[in-house]
Amino acid sequence: MKSTHSIGAISVAATLLMAGAAQAEKLTLYCSAQEDWCQLMARSFEEATGIDVDMTRKSSGETFAQIRAEASNPKGDVWWGGTGDPHLQAAEEGLTAEYISPMRGELHPWAISQAESAGNRTIGIYSGALGYGYNTDLMAANDLPEPSCWKDLLDPIYKGHVQMANPNSSGTAYTTLATIVQLFGEDEGFDFMKGLHANINQYTKSGSAPIKAAARGENTIGIVFMHDAVKQAVAGFPIKVVAPCEGTGYEIGSMSIVEGARNMDEAKAFYDWALSAEAQALALEVDAFQVMSNMAAPSSDLAPDMSALTLIDYDFAKYGSSDERKRLLQKWDEEVSTLPQ
């Protein structure tokens, strides 16, 4: 009696395990966009395909670090979102895989040129322009004039009111540095950074932290991507977004497949899906105001209109390369960050 019992139990357990083994389709997604967007992408992909998604959200720098650390034994399959530079660096180091998606025909040219500059190891999924935002209440309380250009920020009246991230730890801030260098030339650009340094109250670690601090009233002006500033304004904070008059640089949020991914088929399925108009339309549900790469994807009225901005011809290949990056960061470290404030 007892033995039949245990045999029964074993077969029940076995069936359960078989059932567990049957639904083996899964995908490990490294996500570097904002948390709720990541969640939504993961859940929607599960609904659309029935593939189980394991999603980790980390900043693009962290994810890049993780993919590099795991290079000899990859754990992730797809890396979605986050500024393009680390994606380009990963492509340069061969950490990500080549793939040409059938969805390419539907994409904006900038997304495809991003892919081509990296040997098709990455692709653009959204783009956003750099700018700054300020807290209108604090501006009024301190009787400060409203800035509209990059060079306005050098005015000593803004001393202690400007915040940007540290380019060493944030992709956003590195894009700022590279933009300024491309806009004004290297020497004048570094003079600009030195002048700005005098007005900076804190170099934050994370890229969007300055505008978040401004939203909470802990800081006045934050140099960030404009869509991040728009998001705070939409959330109800007294933030005004500025597109600098001299023109500005931009990022291309990218996506890559990890080289040697354990679930390569699922990774490609996600890749194609993420480039579709309906997947990109999800951005609006989570107040992500970037311009999406699929030409048919809807955009918000609140989003900064990329065609109305003066955009510089950002050299992603040059300023995304490890060497140039290291050189600029070292120069910034030595010549700017050590100055007294």
């Binding site: 980390k58 900043s59 720098g61 962290e62 890049f64 670090a65 590099r68 650390a69 530079d85 680390p86 540290n166 380019p167 060493n168 730890s169 944030s170 992709g171 590195y174 109250n201 804190q202 170099y203 670690k205 960061l329």
Partner: peptide, 22 residues
């Protein structure tokens, strides 16, 4: 922390930051 860096956070940002220096 503001601009006052301490060891424990510096370690974190050396690993996770864009500089990634193990």
């Amino acid at each position: 922390g503001g601009n006052y860096d301490v060891l424990s956070t510096e370690i974190f940002f050396a690993i996770v930051g864009a500089q990634y220096d193990q």
